[in-house]
Design a protein around this nucleic acid. Structure first.
Length: 262
DNA sequence: CTGTTTGTTTGCCG
DNA sequence: TCGGCAAACAAACA
């Protein structure tokens, strides 16, 4: 699940639960998801409080009272769960809190990662992440995409270009902007890019304000043609043609062949 | 058993 | 050195 809107929801969830709480102990149930030295993870959290949250793209950052930063990336299936008595099935790292509650990093497929660092800026530099797509200005988008020759969809998925855009959002943007996912970036016009940028902002805004609850997205959203939502539609909202799917850059890609010509 | 998966990293190639 | 590309990673679920 976790693309930008979900990670923003997790950030808000963290703010409403574990923020300002003190960590008694960190339990590393599966070291696979911990990128750093476990001793460093303990050092910056145990006997410390969670003081501040930030998010860039799909990365969540928590500054602790040790003045260091905890980074959480959710991979394909990660989430957070705050609980007292009912632990999630796949809690890989669990922060046991002084207040008797626990915050688990629940990650069934183990693609998620937890890491520690000196600052958010350091992480952003190290990962070469762009500005968060939700906050990005046109000028940066234009700069990041210009000169590229690859297919447009994989470029939108590139976190150095538009941090936070994931697979369904890229499909949603390209469908609403009526552009084929395999279109070469250098063959698109300024007008195409302005449409892509506008749709990106619009979709992210909608998804974040609906707290990434897919079922509540507008009926004409292409996401309802992926078989993920209760609506489970098959036809394009624009032209009524049946949507098709293919692989682009190795990723499942849904398009309307009528609306998205190469 | 087979195929699929909302993400990122790595290594090869030009 | 850089961009493009495909494979690898891991495990649950249908």
């Amino acid at each position: 699940m976790p693309e930008l809107p979900e990670v923003e929801r997790f950030r808000q969830y963290f703010e409403g639960t574990a923020l300002h709480q003190k960590v008694a102990q960190v339990e590393i149930a599966d070291a696979k998801v911990v990128s750093c030295d476990p001793a460093d993870l303990k050092a910056i959290t145990e006997k410390h409080t969670f003081d501040k949250t930030e998010r860039i793209g799909k990365y969540l950052f928590i500054t602790t009272s040790a003045q260091k930063v905890l980074m959480i990336h959710f991979g394909m299936s990660g989430s957070l769960k705050y609980y007292r008595d009912d632990p999630p099935r796949f809690g890989r790292v669990i922060f046991h809190l002084d207040n008797g509650f626990h915050l688990a990093f629940d990650c069934p497929r183990k693609f998620g990662r937890i890491d520690v660092g000196d600052s958010v800026k350091d992480f952003q530099t190290k990962k070469k992440l762009s500005t968060d797509a939700y906050k990005m200005e046109w000028e940066e988008f234009d700069k990041n995409i210009s000169g590229r020759t690859g297919m447009i969809k994989p470029l939108l998925l590139n976190q150095k270009i538009t941090a936070g855009v994931g697979n369904w959002i890229a499909d949603e943007i390209l469908h609403q902007a009526q552009i084929h996912p395999e279109a070469r970036a250098n063959h698109l016009t300024k007008d195409d890019y302005q449409r892509i940028f506008q749709k990106m902002k619009d979709i992210l805004h909608t998804a974040v304000s609906l707290e990434a609850n897919y079922n509540e997205y507008p009926d004409n959203y292409f996401i309802h043609r992926r078989g993920w939502t209760e609506l489970n539609l098959k036809e394009c909202a624009q032209c009524d043609a049946e949507v098709t799917h293919m692989k682009v850059g190795g990723r499942a890609t849904y398009i309307c062949e009528g609306c998205q010509k190469k």
